[in-house]
Simulated scan of single mutants.
Amino acid sequence: MLIGELSERTDTSRRLLRYYEEQGLIVANRSPNGYRDYDEYNVDRVLQIRGLLDAGLPTRIIKQILPCLDKPRVIYFPDATPEMIATLELERDRMTDRIRCLTRNRDAVTEYLDAVLEYSHTGEIPTPAQSGQG
């Protein structure tokens, strides 16, 4: 697929996709006319990269983590400095905290939505036991 399609499918700017390529995070083949041609797996790869960036990881660490996302896995350890390990542990813990918070918020939204739907069906305000709060 061309860069425009990858951009649309991942909601990622073309400029950012070219940056990912410069950083060695994704790879494009080149067609005879010089256009970038991306394999289908790059859609998921770009979404994974964006998720890792959103989690606060720098591209230099993401590049080392990417092999863990593939099957079969080939993981390289030569650059695993104590600083990198500390960064990964910190980011992992931050992700865990965000997951807990997101889970709590999702549960609250679900509970509210359940109550709203119950009210729309019955016209009665649900009691805490009915809405799962009891």
Rank of each mutant, 00 (worst) to 15 (best):
I85L: 10
Y35R: 02
L6T: 02
L113R: 13
I3H: 00
L66R: 01
G56V: 06
R73H: 10
G34K: 05
G132E: 08
I65Q: 03
E91A: 14
A80V: 03
V109S: 12
I99L: 11
S131I: 12
V46P: 04
F77Q: 07
N33F: 02
A108E: 13
P128Y: 09
V43Y: 03
S131C: 13
V116T: 14
Y19S: 03
P72S: 10
L66E: 01
P32L: 14
R18V: 04
Q130I: 07
R9M: 13
P58N: 08
A115F: 06
L17R: 01
V109L: 15
D70Y: 05
D11I: 06
P82C: 01
L17H: 02
A28P: 00
Q64W: 02
K63H: 03
D97I: 11
L113G: 10
R98V: 08
T59C: 09
D114H: 15
A80L: 05
L90W: 09
F77N: 09
T96Q: 13
N42G: 02
E124V: 11
M95R: 05
D11P: 02
Q133M: 14
T96N: 08
R36S: 01
D107Q: 15
I49N: 00
V46A: 00
L25C: 04
D37G: 02
Y76T: 15
D37I: 03
G34H: 05
I3M: 04
